[in-house]
Design a protein around this nucleic acid. Sequence first.
DNA 1: GATTCGTGGTA
DNA 2: TTACCAAGAAT
Length: 354
Amino acid sequence: MRDLDSQPKPHSDTLLEWYDQHARDLPWRISPADRAQGVWPDPYRIWLSEVMLQQTTVAAVKDYFHRFTTRWPTVADLAAAEDADVMGEWAGLGYYARARNLLKCARVVAQDHGGVFPDTYDGLIKLPGIGPYTAAAISAIAFDRKETVLDGNVERVMARLYDIHTPLPVAKPELKEKAADLTPTGRPGDHAQAVMDLGATICTPRNPACGICPWRTPCAARLAGTATELPKKTPKKPKPTRLGFIYLARNEAGDWLLEQRPDKGLLGGMLGWPGSDWNEDPADRPPFDADWQELGAEVRHTFTHFHLILRVKLAQLPTGYHPQGSEQIIARHDFRPSDLPTVMRKAFDLWKGR
DNA sequence: GATTCGTGGTA
DNA sequence: TTACCAAGAAT
């Protein structure tokens, strides 16, 4: 008769042995072999990667990470960049407050810390855009401090390892406690990356590969057969659908009328087309009087908490039009669709293929 | 504690 | 097609 007390306890050593053999090769990562030789990661690159990876997949981040580090190799370079250049380079990655806070943080580090990142959790968490997870991740990975990271991967691994059925986010403190108990004194940075790699490649949300998991023996959910149900989460609210108008206008030379969106709120600080509010019944009020023609197709886009359907209208921009407020005229050859957030780029793509 | 804040991949 | 999910932070 097997009971829970006869279950072996999970140990970090088992996981680290697995990590030494299976660690993913990531652009910002120092391999466990190199790390063992005394090679340290660049805190700037760890910070940048961690911010980009917030709620974002590794696959989506890779190209952005390469472009950012090529264009701005150090935190001082980034701190000296123009706001619009950074926002444009971030365009398409989403959660644009990250880009605004990234720049704020770079400038604080450059100006108040001599271009050197704080090497402790308490120092890091004071910085813009660095919360509990990212402060723990940077201090563990970049400085090998004994901090415990708690991201979606770790939550899932711990919920399964200990068969915890309390739904998130209520279960968070309990999961953090379990994760902390497993954090070793030696190689805490590799351990943090190992748990996250395990969650990303073995202990996945659907179809976890329990048969090849280094922690299969001590896993309580595997024993109970509940792995795929965990972690439990409180149900999400349904997404409403909002409507809106956007207005594409260019003059005879091919220059476009765009606007800088306000710093706060949705797509804050990003470039976009002039448009209406987004709600159930938006008013169709173009930025100037003209013969506005509606394009046949609509832009459909889904944000975190609502669906959006945009009707796109087109008109010729009068020669000599003076941009008002946040509007700006961008010369034909200065306009890069890649500077636009995806929903705005979809409207441009619609025009291009009209 | 609940809400806001993007996007692309996947089943 | 829809819903879920991803190395969360700020308010």
